[in-house]
Nucleic acid binder design. Sequence first.
DNA 1: GCCAACCATGGCGATATGGGCATAAAAGCA
DNA 2: TGCTTTTATGCCCATATCGCCATGGTTGGC
Lengths: 109, 109
Amino acid sequence: MAMKRRAPKLYEARAAIAKALAHPTRLLVLDALRQKDMCVCELTELVGADQSTVSKHLAILKNTGLVEARKEGAMTYYSLTCPCLDGFFQCIESVLQKNLKEFRALVGR
Amino acid sequence: MAMKRRAPKLYEARAAIAKALAHPTRLLVLDALRQKDMCVCELTELVGADQSTVSKHLAILKNTGLVEARKEGAMTYYSLTCPCLDGFFQCIESVLQKNLKEFRALVGR
DNA sequence: GCCAACCATGGCGATATGGGCATAAAAGCA
DNA sequence: TGCTTTTATGCCCATATCGCCATGGTTGGC
């Protein structure tokens, strides 16, 4: 990682957050959590992967500060910490839409 | 990649875009391009890495539809395609601020 | 035509990421 | 106390990512 000239640390910190957002399973989880808090077993059911895999994805989101965990008996409930995610999702979606439109134009509708 | 249950393709498409955003050098480049279009040699100078490295980062951004390339003589100028990036940057920054605040609170200001 | 500048791409090695299995810790229940 | 459920974590392997070097194609100037 070279980056000799401009505030490398800041861009690395930002990239760390973006990285946490850059996985389909984690996006699915975040999207689901927008509706309601969920425990690991619910999310595991939703995602359809191994429980350990889901648990690790949640750890990543938590370490980045995107979600927080709350223990309730044997279960751990996860919830979003950031309303700001809307801006992120909208941006992504808008790029997606733009690409789709260009693709359609290319194929000829 | 399991993801048995919910619109996996859509989340993968979204993740692909997020992935392109998840690297410090690419964030730096995108940020710089918000000010003005720049050619590869300018961006190489800015980033401080090998020209080939910068070129590959630009290819990634281009393939994702986040920037576009315009040839001008021997040079290739890159420019942003999405005003929507603001929403993304704001989201990232807000997470960063939140983390920082919590960190400060933890240390005791 | 020839050379220099600019850019893209293939190759390669080092490191990071992601997935499941196995396991251990903690809680609830009989 | 035993047994089950719920999570988290270590381990291992497969794959992806990233960086530089080397190279080749293009363009512009001489």
